[in-house]
Design a protein around this nucleic acid. Sequence first.
DNA 1: AATTAGCACTCCCATCACACGAGTGATAAA
DNA 2: TTTATCACTCGTGTGATGGGAGTGCTAATT
Lengths: 345, 345
Amino acid sequence: MTELQLSQRRKQVLRIVIQEYVENAQPVGSQSIAQKYDLGVSAATIRNDLAALEKAGLLTHPHTSAGRIPTDGGYRYFVANLMAHTDLPSQERHMIRHQFHQARQEIDQWLRLSTAVLAKASTGAALATSPRSITSRVKHLELIGIQDTAVLLVLVLATGTLKQQLITLEQPIFQEELSRASNQLNVEISGATAADLPEKLEEFTGFTREVGELVLKTLLQSEEQITERVYRHGLAEVLAEPEFADGPQVRRIVQVFEQRTLLHEIYDDIMELSDVQVMIAGEGRFGDMQDISLVLSRYGVPDRVSGLLGVVGPMRMPYGRTIGAVRYVATLLNEMMHQLYGQNH
Amino acid sequence: MTELQLSQRRKQVLRIVIQEYVENAQPVGSQSIAQKYDLGVSAATIRNDLAALEKAGLLTHPHTSAGRIPTDGGYRYFVANLMAHTDLPSQERHMIRHQFHQARQEIDQWLRLSTAVLAKASTGAALATSPRSITSRVKHLELIGIQDTAVLLVLVLATGTLKQQLITLEQPIFQEELSRASNQLNVEISGATAADLPEKLEEFTGFTREVGELVLKTLLQSEEQITERVYRHGLAEVLAEPEFADGPQVRRIVQVFEQRTLLHEIYDDIMELSDVQVMIAGEGRFGDMQDISLVLSRYGVPDRVSGLLGVVGPMRMPYGRTIGAVRYVATLLNEMMHQLYGQNH
DNA sequence: AATTAGCACTCCCATCACACGAGTGATAAA
DNA sequence: TTTATCACTCGTGTGATGGGAGTGCTAATT
């Protein structure tokens, strides 16, 4: 993409239009700009600038005699070139950090908190996926008889995640045999990844082998699944924004917010990049996302676990603030999880 | 409440008004009734009946020259006295049952499926809570060293539910000591409830005792928590209904759908009663639920586990069908869980 | 007493006309 | 390149108008 060349003043004008529009949700005209901001030029000049910015595809009118509003391209230019790098105010940061430290050692709690915090700090609705292991490593397994013919396989992964799987048997099995099988397997497969496992399983037969296969299956599954659990928060609030006054628009954002498939599609894109990603009106690559923007980030521990975190809201969104919030929460989560999953293993 | 006395024909008229209005979302007038349904009387007579039903508080006009629409009271009367007892068509029932049997032994899957099925079979958005144990019983515990000073406590309840809790220690502890502690505890507390536990813990000291206390705390927590996880499905679809064309109304239903607090408040009411409960416009007992109805049911195994399941939708809802769907899915869940948690223990 | 026909009345809704005003675009001068 | 000026556009708000669906009432009928 060739970098668009704009005079300083025109950049300034664009910045003002976006800022005003984000704040008031009203088209902004040349006069009000000239009046409110002292650019040292008259309204007529600004009018010319506005026309130029419109020609460049950064602004539009809703109709002839209305002020200008930013296009999706306008927002993109703003985010890429004009936006002030905004961190959350330090007071707010401290409050959030404090809350996180309250919820000790509970990933589930952290993610709930993350969405709550994000929804509050942005104008959007927040969502987060549970973390997914990049390569799962078995730490320990346990077989527990639940009923005569029902056995619960409990799998502890190196990350501390628990997986459970119910096994239904043809005929009853004694707890001693369960213990024997689990002991044998533990010795062999503790620390193994999905890649190591098939080889190690070869020496086993019968029930023990079956359990081993199930472990493998569960392991693979846990590496695949990226939206095992999705945390959401703040949909009701974002619907109060004026752009969601009419029906179709509401359904659109609710769908984006609810659908798991979208997250699947986006996941890989986000994972490749370490910083916060902004996706305005679907960037042409995703379906019906007119007037909707996403601000997303990866979180986790590199090469170990990672998940998705972010905000979905109207295109008319305070990007600076939102990006700052998402970035801060992601950083915080990174810290917390680093501490948990830590250096060893 | 004194049972309202209505002539056969008036009941019939009320039934028709509700049926037509539910179908078309349009006020229905005396003439269209006389025309479409052969009641053997003229429009004028029906007009009198409509006036009488309005006086009785079962119908209203939006304005003088419009047809009638049901009030919340009208719907209540309909549900209580007039509604045909409708089960889901048997073909649909079979399909649903089949889907449930596909998702073998996975409560999580069942509940996801339940909400998906309910959302499809009703005009509403479906929600379900994860099951909660009435009295949790410890089946087994396991202590697993994750890092030097981090130990994962894995608790298997008699129901097969897993609870995990991370313990952070002051100083490192050896796996042998962990094993010793867990073995000691397992012998003593296996099968114990929260009520039994304090007594049994008395003989322990030090680390073992600490773990025991933690088990107790976790147990109590799991009995309290009723909305550990809430499954939701189909919000986007219900927003397509004409009553949600305007803003405030949308926010209202989204709030009802999202809020956990409401579920907490309703929980006890629903649990007392075994059949499907219909709650129209909050029944005067709950906050801002204008024009919103809930159709809810308990599910689970009596005296062991139970959860909440149901639909939230517009007041203008096909109650017969919705109730049938909720009832069927609840029954199905009951069956499945009965099989899982079963007769023993 | 219940039902019916007739009729005036009410009130929503769609349509049109009109004026207002914010904001533009163009032109010509500085 | 910037500015002042001015005609033009078009959404918005207001008020008038007519049609129509549906009611409520009254008086006649069964």
